[in-house]
Design a protein around this nucleic acid. Structure first.
Lengths: 223, 223
DNA sequence: ATCCTTGATTCGTGATGACATTCTTCCGCT
DNA sequence: AGCGGAAGAATGTCATCACGAATCAAGGAT
Protein backbone atom coordinates (compact mmCIF):
# COMPACT_ATOMS: atom_id res chain seq x y z
CA UNK A 1 0.00 0.00 0.00
CA UNK A 2 1.08 3.54 -0.74
CA UNK A 3 3.98 2.43 -2.97
CA UNK A 4 2.77 4.35 -5.97
CA UNK A 5 1.50 7.46 -4.25
CA UNK A 6 2.44 10.63 -6.00
CA UNK A 7 3.26 13.51 -3.68
CA UNK A 8 0.27 15.75 -3.32
CA UNK A 9 0.64 18.82 -5.43
CA UNK A 10 -0.57 21.94 -3.72
CA UNK A 11 -2.27 24.31 -6.03
CA UNK A 12 0.41 26.80 -6.67
CA UNK A 13 -0.72 30.20 -7.73
CA UNK A 14 0.53 29.79 -11.27
CA UNK A 15 -1.39 26.54 -11.58
CA UNK A 16 -4.62 28.25 -10.68
CA UNK A 17 -3.89 31.06 -13.08
CA UNK A 18 -3.09 28.52 -15.78
CA UNK A 19 -6.32 26.63 -15.23
CA UNK A 20 -8.39 29.78 -15.32
CA UNK A 21 -6.71 30.93 -18.50
CA UNK A 22 -7.38 27.53 -20.08
CA UNK A 23 -11.03 27.78 -19.14
CA UNK A 24 -11.24 31.25 -20.60
CA UNK A 25 -9.57 30.01 -23.77
CA UNK A 26 -12.05 27.16 -24.09
CA UNK A 27 -14.90 29.56 -23.53
CA UNK A 28 -13.71 31.79 -26.32
CA UNK A 29 -12.96 34.80 -24.16
CA UNK A 30 -9.86 35.65 -26.16
CA UNK A 31 -10.00 37.26 -29.54
CA UNK A 32 -7.28 35.98 -31.87
CA UNK A 33 -4.69 38.62 -32.52
CA UNK A 34 -5.54 40.54 -29.40
CA UNK A 35 -2.71 40.97 -26.91
CA UNK A 36 -2.94 39.42 -23.47
CA UNK A 37 -0.78 41.62 -21.26
CA UNK A 38 0.59 40.21 -18.04
CA UNK A 39 -0.41 43.24 -16.02
CA UNK A 40 -4.06 43.11 -17.10
CA UNK A 41 -4.41 39.45 -16.23
CA UNK A 42 -2.61 39.98 -12.95
CA UNK A 43 -4.95 42.79 -12.01
CA UNK A 44 -8.02 40.88 -13.12
CA UNK A 45 -7.05 37.78 -11.15
CA UNK A 46 -5.82 39.69 -8.14
CA UNK A 47 -2.32 38.24 -8.20
CA UNK A 48 1.11 39.60 -8.93
CA UNK A 49 2.70 39.47 -12.33
CA UNK A 50 4.90 36.50 -11.57
CA UNK A 51 2.43 33.59 -11.62
CA UNK A 52 0.73 35.09 -14.66
CA UNK A 53 4.03 35.20 -16.47
CA UNK A 54 4.60 31.58 -15.70
CA UNK A 55 1.15 30.56 -16.90
CA UNK A 56 1.57 32.50 -20.13
CA UNK A 57 4.99 30.96 -20.63
CA UNK A 58 3.43 27.51 -20.37
CA UNK A 59 0.71 28.37 -22.87
CA UNK A 60 3.39 29.79 -25.12
CA UNK A 61 5.40 26.57 -24.83
CA UNK A 62 2.55 24.35 -25.99
CA UNK A 63 1.69 26.61 -28.89
CA UNK A 64 -1.64 27.87 -27.60
CA UNK A 65 -0.39 31.43 -27.41
CA UNK A 66 2.19 33.08 -29.62
CA UNK A 67 3.83 36.42 -30.17
CA UNK A 68 1.30 38.63 -31.84
CA UNK A 69 3.12 41.93 -32.02
CA UNK A 70 6.75 42.37 -31.21
CA UNK A 71 6.43 42.09 -27.49
CA UNK A 72 2.92 40.95 -26.71
CA UNK A 73 1.56 37.42 -26.64
CA UNK A 74 -1.95 36.35 -27.48
CA UNK A 75 -4.00 33.82 -29.36
CA UNK A 76 -2.37 33.71 -32.79
CA UNK A 77 -4.40 34.56 -35.85
CA UNK A 78 -4.54 31.37 -37.89
CA UNK A 79 -4.35 31.45 -41.65
CA UNK A 80 -5.97 28.93 -43.93
CA UNK A 81 -2.87 26.74 -44.13
CA UNK A 82 -2.46 26.62 -40.37
CA UNK A 83 -6.09 25.78 -39.77
CA UNK A 84 -5.96 23.04 -42.37
CA UNK A 85 -2.79 21.64 -40.90
CA UNK A 86 -4.37 21.56 -37.46
CA UNK A 87 -7.43 19.84 -38.90
CA UNK A 88 -5.42 17.21 -40.73
CA UNK A 89 -3.41 16.32 -37.66
CA UNK A 90 -6.47 16.33 -35.41
CA UNK A 91 -8.31 14.05 -37.81
CA UNK A 92 -5.56 11.48 -37.67
CA UNK A 93 -4.73 11.66 -33.99
CA UNK A 94 -8.23 11.93 -32.61
CA UNK A 95 -9.59 9.17 -34.81
CA UNK A 96 -6.71 7.05 -33.61
CA UNK A 97 -7.66 7.76 -30.02
CA UNK A 98 -11.24 6.76 -30.72
CA UNK A 99 -10.15 3.47 -32.26
CA UNK A 100 -8.09 2.74 -29.16
CA UNK A 101 -11.02 3.77 -26.99
CA UNK A 102 -13.28 1.25 -28.70
CA UNK A 103 -10.72 -1.44 -27.98
CA UNK A 104 -10.70 -0.49 -24.30
CA UNK A 105 -14.43 -0.12 -24.07
CA UNK A 106 -16.01 -1.20 -20.80
CA UNK A 107 -19.29 -0.80 -18.97
CA UNK A 108 -18.37 2.24 -16.94
CA UNK A 109 -17.20 4.00 -20.06
CA UNK A 110 -20.41 3.22 -21.93
CA UNK A 111 -22.49 4.55 -19.06
CA UNK A 112 -20.50 7.77 -18.85
CA UNK A 113 -20.48 8.39 -22.57
CA UNK A 114 -24.21 7.74 -22.75
CA UNK A 115 -24.73 10.24 -19.97
CA UNK A 116 -22.57 12.83 -21.72
CA UNK A 117 -24.45 12.33 -24.96
CA UNK A 118 -27.70 12.84 -23.10
CA UNK A 119 -26.41 16.04 -21.59
CA UNK A 120 -25.23 17.20 -24.99
CA UNK A 121 -28.69 16.75 -26.45
CA UNK A 122 -30.23 18.46 -23.48
CA UNK A 123 -28.01 21.52 -23.80
CA UNK A 124 -28.69 21.56 -27.53
CA UNK A 125 -32.39 21.96 -26.90
CA UNK A 126 -31.96 24.51 -24.16
CA UNK A 127 -29.84 26.61 -26.50
CA UNK A 128 -27.26 27.34 -23.84
CA UNK A 129 -24.21 27.67 -26.04
CA UNK A 130 -21.66 28.02 -23.28
CA UNK A 131 -22.96 24.86 -21.64
CA UNK A 132 -22.91 23.05 -24.97
CA UNK A 133 -19.28 23.99 -25.61
CA UNK A 134 -18.32 22.80 -22.17
CA UNK A 135 -20.19 19.52 -22.44
CA UNK A 136 -18.86 18.94 -25.93
CA UNK A 137 -15.35 19.25 -24.57
CA UNK A 138 -16.11 16.84 -21.76
CA UNK A 139 -17.64 14.38 -24.20
CA UNK A 140 -14.64 14.33 -26.49
CA UNK A 141 -12.17 14.34 -23.63
CA UNK A 142 -13.86 11.34 -22.02
CA UNK A 143 -13.75 9.60 -25.36
CA UNK A 144 -10.02 10.13 -25.73
CA UNK A 145 -9.26 9.22 -22.14
CA UNK A 146 -10.65 5.77 -22.87
CA UNK A 147 -7.70 5.28 -25.22
CA UNK A 148 -5.88 4.77 -21.93
CA UNK A 149 -2.94 6.62 -23.38
CA UNK A 150 -1.98 9.61 -21.24
CA UNK A 151 0.47 10.79 -23.90
CA UNK A 152 -2.10 10.73 -26.66
CA UNK A 153 -4.74 12.37 -24.49
CA UNK A 154 -2.36 15.14 -23.55
CA UNK A 155 -1.42 15.79 -27.16
CA UNK A 156 -5.05 16.01 -28.14
CA UNK A 157 -5.84 18.27 -25.22
CA UNK A 158 -3.25 20.82 -26.30
CA UNK A 159 -4.53 20.64 -29.88
CA UNK A 160 -8.03 21.41 -28.60
CA UNK A 161 -6.70 24.32 -26.63
CA UNK A 162 -5.16 25.65 -29.83
CA UNK A 163 -8.34 25.52 -31.87
CA UNK A 164 -10.88 26.32 -29.16
CA UNK A 165 -10.55 30.09 -29.32
CA UNK A 166 -11.27 29.97 -33.03
CA UNK A 167 -13.90 27.28 -32.95
CA UNK A 168 -15.89 29.27 -30.48
CA UNK A 169 -16.78 31.69 -33.21
CA UNK A 170 -19.12 29.01 -34.49
CA UNK A 171 -21.53 29.94 -31.75
CA UNK A 172 -23.40 32.18 -34.10
CA UNK A 173 -23.88 29.37 -36.57
CA UNK A 174 -26.10 26.41 -35.91
CA UNK A 175 -23.19 24.04 -36.19
CA UNK A 176 -23.87 22.50 -32.84
CA UNK A 177 -27.16 21.09 -34.06
CA UNK A 178 -25.67 18.93 -36.78
CA UNK A 179 -22.74 18.10 -34.55
CA UNK A 180 -24.92 16.05 -32.23
CA UNK A 181 -25.90 13.81 -35.12
CA UNK A 182 -22.26 12.81 -35.38
CA UNK A 183 -21.99 12.44 -31.64
CA UNK A 184 -24.89 10.04 -31.61
CA UNK A 185 -23.31 8.06 -34.42
CA UNK A 186 -20.06 7.86 -32.51
CA UNK A 187 -21.77 6.52 -29.41
CA UNK A 188 -23.81 4.01 -31.36
CA UNK A 189 -20.70 2.76 -33.15
CA UNK A 190 -18.93 2.34 -29.84
CA UNK A 191 -21.82 0.29 -28.50
CA UNK A 192 -21.50 -1.96 -31.52
CA UNK A 193 -17.74 -2.15 -31.03
CA UNK A 194 -17.28 -0.78 -34.54
CA UNK A 195 -14.04 1.19 -34.34
CA UNK A 196 -14.02 2.14 -38.00
CA UNK A 197 -17.52 3.58 -37.91
CA UNK A 198 -16.76 5.47 -34.71
CA UNK A 199 -13.65 7.07 -36.13
CA UNK A 200 -15.53 7.86 -39.35
CA UNK A 201 -18.23 9.66 -37.40
CA UNK A 202 -15.64 11.54 -35.38
CA UNK A 203 -13.86 12.60 -38.54
CA UNK A 204 -17.17 13.84 -39.91
CA UNK A 205 -17.75 15.78 -36.69
CA UNK A 206 -14.39 17.53 -36.83
CA UNK A 207 -14.54 18.08 -40.57
CA UNK A 208 -17.95 19.72 -40.46
CA UNK A 209 -16.86 22.17 -37.82
CA UNK A 210 -13.72 22.90 -39.84
CA UNK A 211 -15.73 23.52 -43.01
CA UNK A 212 -18.04 25.97 -41.34
CA UNK A 213 -15.15 27.75 -39.68
CA UNK A 214 -13.14 28.10 -42.87
CA UNK A 215 -16.18 29.37 -44.73
CA UNK A 216 -16.82 31.93 -42.02
CA UNK A 217 -13.24 33.14 -41.77
CA UNK A 218 -12.23 33.25 -45.40
CA UNK A 219 -15.36 33.80 -47.42
CA UNK A 220 -14.94 37.57 -47.46
CA UNK A 221 -11.21 37.61 -48.07
CA UNK A 222 -11.37 35.70 -51.32
CA UNK A 223 -13.55 38.32 -53.02
CA UNK B 1 7.13 42.55 -50.80
CA UNK B 2 7.54 42.40 -47.04
CA UNK B 3 3.83 41.80 -46.44
CA UNK B 4 4.36 38.56 -44.63
CA UNK B 5 7.50 39.42 -42.73
CA UNK B 6 7.51 38.17 -39.19
CA UNK B 7 9.12 40.53 -36.71
CA UNK B 8 12.66 39.45 -36.08
CA UNK B 9 12.90 37.61 -32.80
CA UNK B 10 15.93 38.59 -30.82
CA UNK B 11 17.45 35.75 -28.94
CA UNK B 12 16.16 36.41 -25.52
CA UNK B 13 18.16 34.98 -22.67
CA UNK B 14 15.53 32.39 -21.79
CA UNK B 15 15.47 31.20 -25.39
CA UNK B 16 19.19 30.56 -25.35
CA UNK B 17 18.91 28.77 -22.03
CA UNK B 18 16.05 26.69 -23.41
CA UNK B 19 18.00 25.70 -26.50
CA UNK B 20 21.03 24.72 -24.50
CA UNK B 21 18.92 22.66 -22.13
CA UNK B 22 17.30 20.91 -25.09
CA UNK B 23 20.71 20.09 -26.52
CA UNK B 24 21.86 18.73 -23.20
CA UNK B 25 18.70 16.65 -22.95
CA UNK B 26 19.26 15.19 -26.40
CA UNK B 27 22.86 14.43 -25.53
CA UNK B 28 21.79 12.52 -22.46
CA UNK B 29 23.42 14.83 -19.95
CA UNK B 30 20.53 14.46 -17.54
CA UNK B 31 20.04 11.39 -15.44
CA UNK B 32 16.36 10.53 -14.99
CA UNK B 33 15.21 11.17 -11.46
CA UNK B 34 18.01 13.59 -10.77
CA UNK B 35 16.95 17.09 -9.78
CA UNK B 36 17.80 20.05 -12.01
CA UNK B 37 18.00 23.03 -9.66
CA UNK B 38 17.52 26.49 -11.04
CA UNK B 39 20.49 27.91 -9.19
CA UNK B 40 22.91 25.29 -10.49
CA UNK B 41 21.89 25.85 -14.09
CA UNK B 42 21.99 29.59 -13.60
CA UNK B 43 25.51 29.43 -12.23
CA UNK B 44 26.65 27.02 -14.94
CA UNK B 45 25.25 29.17 -17.73
CA UNK B 46 26.32 32.44 -16.17
CA UNK B 47 22.85 33.94 -16.06
CA UNK B 48 20.43 34.86 -13.33
CA UNK B 49 17.74 32.53 -12.08
CA UNK B 50 14.95 34.17 -14.04
CA UNK B 51 15.62 32.97 -17.59
CA UNK B 52 16.46 29.50 -16.30
CA UNK B 53 13.18 29.38 -14.46
CA UNK B 54 11.34 30.30 -17.61
CA UNK B 55 13.14 27.66 -19.66
CA UNK B 56 12.40 24.98 -17.07
CA UNK B 57 8.76 26.05 -17.00
CA UNK B 58 8.56 25.53 -20.73
CA UNK B 59 10.12 22.08 -20.52
CA UNK B 60 7.72 21.30 -17.70
CA UNK B 61 4.78 22.42 -19.83
CA UNK B 62 5.60 20.07 -22.69
CA UNK B 63 6.15 17.12 -20.38
CA UNK B 64 9.89 16.79 -20.87
CA UNK B 65 10.57 17.59 -17.27
CA UNK B 66 8.37 16.81 -14.29
CA UNK B 67 8.38 17.11 -10.56
CA UNK B 68 10.71 14.49 -9.22
CA UNK B 69 10.64 15.23 -5.51
CA UNK B 70 8.24 17.64 -3.93
CA UNK B 71 9.90 20.79 -5.09
CA UNK B 72 12.52 19.85 -7.63
CA UNK B 73 12.05 19.23 -11.32
CA UNK B 74 14.02 16.87 -13.49
CA UNK B 75 13.75 14.22 -16.14
CA UNK B 76 11.05 11.90 -14.83
CA UNK B 77 11.82 8.27 -14.24
CA UNK B 78 9.67 6.35 -16.71
CA UNK B 79 8.07 3.07 -15.74
CA UNK B 80 7.28 0.26 -18.14
CA UNK B 81 3.75 1.48 -18.79
CA UNK B 82 4.86 5.01 -19.55
CA UNK B 83 7.63 3.88 -21.89
CA UNK B 84 5.23 1.59 -23.70
CA UNK B 85 2.64 4.33 -24.01
CA UNK B 86 5.24 6.67 -25.45
CA UNK B 87 6.32 3.98 -27.89
CA UNK B 88 2.79 3.22 -29.02
CA UNK B 89 2.03 6.86 -29.69
CA UNK B 90 5.37 7.47 -31.37
CA UNK B 91 4.83 4.47 -33.62
CA UNK B 92 1.53 5.82 -34.85
CA UNK B 93 2.43 9.47 -35.14
CA UNK B 94 5.89 9.12 -36.61
CA UNK B 95 4.83 6.50 -39.13
CA UNK B 96 2.04 8.86 -40.12
CA UNK B 97 4.57 11.63 -40.64
CA UNK B 98 6.68 9.37 -42.83
CA UNK B 99 3.69 8.45 -44.98
CA UNK B 100 2.96 12.13 -45.47
CA UNK B 101 6.64 12.76 -46.20
CA UNK B 102 6.60 10.18 -48.99
CA UNK B 103 3.64 11.96 -50.50
CA UNK B 104 5.52 15.26 -50.45
CA UNK B 105 8.75 13.75 -51.68
CA UNK B 106 10.83 15.96 -53.97
CA UNK B 107 14.34 16.11 -55.32
CA UNK B 108 15.81 18.37 -52.68
CA UNK B 109 14.43 16.13 -49.98
CA UNK B 110 15.88 13.00 -51.55
CA UNK B 111 19.28 14.63 -51.82
CA UNK B 112 19.24 15.77 -48.21
CA UNK B 113 18.04 12.47 -46.84
CA UNK B 114 20.64 10.60 -48.86
CA UNK B 115 23.29 12.87 -47.45
CA UNK B 116 22.06 12.34 -43.91
CA UNK B 117 22.04 8.58 -44.40
CA UNK B 118 25.59 8.76 -45.64
CA UNK B 119 26.63 10.76 -42.59
CA UNK B 120 24.85 8.26 -40.35
CA UNK B 121 26.82 5.40 -41.82
CA UNK B 122 30.02 7.36 -41.56
CA UNK B 123 29.51 8.14 -37.88
CA UNK B 124 28.58 4.51 -37.32
CA UNK B 125 31.96 3.40 -38.60
CA UNK B 126 33.88 6.06 -36.73
CA UNK B 127 32.21 4.96 -33.52
CA UNK B 128 31.54 8.52 -32.39
CA UNK B 129 28.37 7.90 -30.42
CA UNK B 130 27.60 11.54 -29.67
CA UNK B 131 27.84 12.38 -33.36
CA UNK B 132 25.66 9.41 -34.23
CA UNK B 133 22.95 10.48 -31.80
CA UNK B 134 23.03 13.98 -33.22
CA UNK B 135 22.91 12.85 -36.83
CA UNK B 136 20.20 10.32 -36.06
CA UNK B 137 18.08 13.14 -34.68
CA UNK B 138 18.72 15.27 -37.74
CA UNK B 139 17.84 12.37 -40.03
CA UNK B 140 14.52 11.69 -38.36
CA UNK B 141 13.70 15.37 -37.99
CA UNK B 142 14.31 16.00 -41.67
CA UNK B 143 12.10 13.05 -42.45
CA UNK B 144 9.24 14.42 -40.41
CA UNK B 145 9.65 17.95 -41.71
CA UNK B 146 8.89 16.63 -45.17
CA UNK B 147 5.38 15.85 -43.91
CA UNK B 148 5.00 19.61 -44.36
CA UNK B 149 2.94 19.70 -41.22
CA UNK B 150 4.39 22.06 -38.63
CA UNK B 151 1.91 20.83 -36.03
CA UNK B 152 2.83 17.19 -36.51
CA UNK B 153 6.54 17.95 -36.58
CA UNK B 154 6.29 19.91 -33.37
CA UNK B 155 4.38 17.12 -31.63
CA UNK B 156 6.99 14.60 -32.68
CA UNK B 157 9.80 16.88 -31.61
CA UNK B 158 8.48 17.12 -28.08
CA UNK B 159 7.99 13.37 -27.97
CA UNK B 160 11.63 12.93 -28.96
CA UNK B 161 12.68 15.33 -26.27
CA UNK B 162 10.78 13.18 -23.79
CA UNK B 163 12.45 9.92 -24.71
CA UNK B 164 15.92 11.20 -25.61
CA UNK B 165 17.31 11.27 -22.08
CA UNK B 166 16.34 7.62 -21.68
CA UNK B 167 17.26 6.47 -25.15
CA UNK B 168 20.73 7.79 -24.69
CA UNK B 169 21.44 4.97 -22.30
CA UNK B 170 21.55 2.74 -25.37
CA UNK B 171 24.99 4.11 -26.11
CA UNK B 172 26.59 1.17 -24.38
CA UNK B 173 24.69 -1.29 -26.52
CA UNK B 174 25.36 -1.75 -30.18
CA UNK B 175 21.89 -0.69 -31.07
CA UNK B 176 23.08 1.97 -33.45
CA UNK B 177 24.56 -0.63 -35.74
CA UNK B 178 21.31 -2.43 -36.48
CA UNK B 179 19.48 0.90 -36.50
CA UNK B 180 21.19 1.95 -39.70
CA UNK B 181 19.81 -1.10 -41.47
CA UNK B 182 16.35 0.30 -40.84
CA UNK B 183 17.45 3.76 -41.87
CA UNK B 184 18.68 2.43 -45.18
CA UNK B 185 15.40 0.61 -45.70
CA UNK B 186 13.48 3.80 -44.99
CA UNK B 187 15.47 5.77 -47.53
CA UNK B 188 15.18 3.07 -50.17
CA UNK B 189 11.43 2.87 -49.65
CA UNK B 190 11.13 6.61 -50.03
CA UNK B 191 13.05 6.48 -53.27
CA UNK B 192 10.57 3.88 -54.52
CA UNK B 193 7.68 6.02 -53.28
CA UNK B 194 6.53 3.12 -51.13
CA UNK B 195 4.94 4.80 -48.12
CA UNK B 196 3.90 1.55 -46.47
CA UNK B 197 7.37 0.07 -46.61
CA UNK B 198 8.89 3.29 -45.32
CA UNK B 199 6.58 3.46 -42.35
CA UNK B 200 7.14 -0.25 -41.69
CA UNK B 201 10.88 0.29 -41.60
CA UNK B 202 10.50 3.28 -39.32
CA UNK B 203 8.31 1.28 -36.97
CA UNK B 204 10.96 -1.43 -36.91
CA UNK B 205 13.57 1.19 -36.12
CA UNK B 206 11.67 2.62 -33.19
CA UNK B 207 10.53 -0.78 -31.94
CA UNK B 208 14.03 -2.20 -31.88
CA UNK B 209 15.33 0.68 -29.82
CA UNK B 210 12.38 0.31 -27.49
CA UNK B 211 12.98 -3.42 -27.05
CA UNK B 212 16.61 -2.94 -26.16
CA UNK B 213 15.78 -0.12 -23.77
CA UNK B 214 13.07 -2.06 -21.97
CA UNK B 215 15.33 -5.07 -21.65
CA UNK B 216 18.06 -2.93 -20.21
CA UNK B 217 15.89 -1.06 -17.77
CA UNK B 218 13.68 -3.85 -16.50
CA UNK B 219 15.63 -7.07 -16.87
CA UNK B 220 16.88 -6.93 -13.29
CA UNK B 221 13.63 -5.85 -11.72
CA UNK B 222 11.67 -8.85 -12.97
CA UNK B 223 13.94 -11.38 -11.28
C1' DA C 1 -4.95 66.75 -44.91
C1' DT C 2 -1.27 63.34 -44.53
C1' DC C 3 2.98 61.74 -43.03
C1' DC C 4 6.84 61.85 -40.08
C1' DT C 5 8.93 62.73 -35.80
C1' DT C 6 9.16 62.84 -31.00
C1' DG C 7 7.81 62.36 -26.34
C1' DA C 8 5.00 59.67 -23.04
C1' DT C 9 3.13 55.48 -21.77
C1' DT C 10 2.86 50.65 -21.65
C1' DC C 11 4.85 46.37 -21.35
C1' DG C 12 8.14 42.48 -21.37
C1' DT C 13 12.70 40.92 -19.64
C1' DG C 14 15.78 40.03 -16.31
C1' DA C 15 17.51 40.91 -11.40
C1' DT C 16 17.02 40.81 -6.62
C1' DG C 17 14.96 39.79 -2.28
C1' DA C 18 11.61 37.95 1.24
C1' DC C 19 9.26 33.96 2.65
C1' DA C 20 7.75 29.15 2.97
C1' DT C 21 8.66 24.54 2.16
C1' DT C 22 11.53 20.70 1.54
C1' DC C 23 15.74 18.24 2.04
C1' DT C 24 19.86 17.00 4.80
C1' DT C 25 22.56 16.26 8.34
C1' DC C 26 23.53 15.38 12.79
C1' DC C 27 22.53 14.55 17.40
C1' DG C 28 19.91 12.22 20.93
C1' DC C 29 16.84 8.60 22.30
C1' DT C 30 15.50 3.82 22.45
C1' DA D 1 23.30 0.22 16.12
C1' DG D 2 18.97 1.85 14.31
C1' DC D 3 15.33 5.04 14.33
C1' DG D 4 13.35 9.64 14.96
C1' DG D 5 13.35 14.46 15.44
C1' DA D 6 15.27 19.11 15.16
C1' DA D 7 18.23 22.61 13.26
C1' DG D 8 20.40 24.37 9.31
C1' DA D 9 20.96 24.53 4.34
C1' DA D 10 19.04 24.49 -0.06
C1' DT D 11 15.47 25.53 -3.15
C1' DG D 12 11.15 26.93 -5.23
C1' DT D 13 7.55 30.53 -5.20
C1' DC D 14 5.99 34.94 -5.47
C1' DA D 15 6.56 40.06 -5.11
C1' DT D 16 8.77 44.12 -6.52
C1' DC D 17 11.85 46.89 -9.28
C1' DA D 18 15.02 48.72 -12.89
C1' DC D 19 15.78 48.96 -17.60
C1' DG D 20 14.98 48.85 -22.42
C1' DA D 21 12.08 48.13 -26.23
C1' DA D 22 7.72 48.69 -28.44
C1' DT D 23 3.39 51.11 -28.92
C1' DC D 24 0.63 55.09 -29.02
C1' DA D 25 -0.49 59.98 -29.42
C1' DA D 26 0.19 64.46 -30.32
C1' DG D 27 2.26 68.07 -32.69
C1' DG D 28 4.80 69.89 -36.49
C1' DA D 29 6.44 69.75 -41.33
C1' DT D 30 5.35 69.15 -46.08
Amino acid sequence: MFENQQPIQKDKLHDQVYDRLCTLLREGEFTPGQAVPVSKVAKAFGVSAMPVREALTRLLAIGVLANVSGRSVGVPVLGYDELTDLRNVRLEIESLAVRWAVKNCDKAFLAEIDDLLGRLEKTEQSGDIAAYIKTNYEFHLRLYQQSRSPVLTEVIDTLWLRVSPHLYQLEKEDQYKVSNIHHRKIVESIHRGDADAASEALIADLSDAYEVLVRMLFQTEST
